[in-house]
């Protein structure tokens, strides 16, 4: 059992730094297996250096986001595991 495995909800903070809409209720389609679901229900692996969100169905990486902590804030955002995002403009 991976002890750093959390729910997609745990990625809500860092994703909220990047996106202006609520990402935990945003539905993502996995580019690998096609499964869709709210990001809040996916798996998140959170560490000091970054956050990886994985598909609940096939465990493929959906999103990787890393923030440089020293100096001016700089982000790396990898979305290639996501075929599409479906979100509402407002809650």
């Amino acid at each position: 059992m991976d002890e750093h495995r959390l729910d997609g909800n745990a990625a809500g903070g860092i994703l909220g730094e990047v996106f202006t809409f609520e990402m935990t209720t945003t539905r993502a389609a996995c580019a690998h297996c096609g499964a869709t679901g709210p990001l809040g229900s996916s798996m998140a692996y959170v560490s000091e250096i970054g956050t990886v969100v994985r598909c609940t169905a096939c465990d493929s990486v959906l999103i990787r986001v890393v923030r440089q902590v020293d100096g001016p804030q700089r982000y790396w955002l990898d979305l290639k595991g996501v075929e599409y995002l479906q979100f509402r403009e407002r809650l």
Partner: peptide, 8 residues
Amino acid sequence: RGPIGGWF
């Protein structure tokens, strides 16, 4: 910062 998370 927050509130965070609309799923749970």
